[in-house]
């Protein structure tokens, strides 16, 4: 199968520190691929490079088989790639619809639109649809996001990314700050995104979570991909082994 998004031999240095040392990464269409690795393995840097938030010093990125340059996040967004940031890039005082359309506000038609008047009804309608599609239930759609639970906020953040990305959504530790129940709900949302045909790159430390939701797992260690697994055929022990280097034979890429 043709990979949807591919990083090849990516190198990224920050001064003396080499965060990526020829890292490869592959995303296939319609899958949840987990990107795992110990602290400092380069997960966040790799994500930033593939989402256009950082430029690689060496190496290339292929999108649907063709080389692309991602100078800034908007370049990636134009290709249908969005990122759900670890520290929730939401405006807590605005409601769900306003957050969903942050920076992409819909304007009314005609003169009012020329004056910059928002089409709040349309945004609200589309937000309700977008949340419903992912099974995100908000008791009060008009409540500021800051009044919601952590899980609901994370779901809104995901819905926001998915609403604009039809190809790939990167999620950096989407469940890190959540309790057990909320975690389960967010993972349901992740599955729904995949089922709707959008690929998900899940960055996570939580091995059972990775195994429960991911189709494939790619392991990063010291800035390089050291193994890839099919989630159904692997175990927590095997993943941890690949992460720490105890199991170097892996099923190397």
């Amino acid at each position: 199968m043709q990979p949807l998004l591919e990083g090849r031999g990516l190198v990224k240095r920050f001064g003396q520190v080499q965060a990526l040392r020829g890292a490869d990464f592959t995303v296939f269409p319609g899958e949840v691929v987990a990107l795992i690795g110990d602290n400092g393995a380069g997960k966040s840097t790799l994500t930033k490079v593939l989402a256009g938030a950082a430029r690689p010093d060496e190496g290339g990125i292929l999108f649907e088989g063709a080389p692309v340059t991602l100078e800034r996040p908007t370049d990636a967004q134009r290709l249908g790639i969005e990122t759900v940031y670890q520290d929730l890039a939401l405006a807590p005082d605005l409601d769900g619809a306003a957050n969903l359309f942050l920076g992409r506000e819909l304007l009314r038609r005609g003169l009012a639109g020329r004056l910059g008047v928002l089409d709040k009804a349309a945004m609200r309608r589309r937000a309700v649809d977008a949340f419903a599609r992912l099974g995100v239930e908000l008791q009060d759609i008009d409540a500021p996001i800051g009044t919601l639970s952590g899980g609901q906020r994370q779901s809104v953040a995901i819905a926001r990314a998915v609403a604009w990305a039809d190809k790939v959504v990167f999620m950096d530790e989407p469940t890190a700050a959540l309790g057990v129940l909320q975690r389960g709900r967010v993972l349901d949302v992740v599955r729904k995104v995949r089922d709707a045909g959008t690929s998900v790159v899940l960055i996570s430390h939580n091995m059972p979570e990775v195994l429960s939701v991911a189709d494939r797992v790619e392991v990063l260690r010291l800035g390089q991909r050291v193994a890839t697994f099919t989630a159904a055929d692997t175990s927590v022990e095997e993943l941890v082994g690949a992460m720490t280097g105890a199991l170097d034979e892996g099923r190397a890429a």
Partner: peptide, 26 residues
């Protein structure tokens, strides 16, 4: 202008979370 326009909405967004607004391309 504050309550109904994009200018107003973005004013709120920046005050609420400037980093989020920046990442949203505002």
């Amino acid at each position: 202008a504050l309550a109904t326009t994009r200018f107003g909405r973005r004013t709120y967004a920046i005050g609420s979370n400037a980093e989020a607004a920046r990442r949203a391309g505002i």
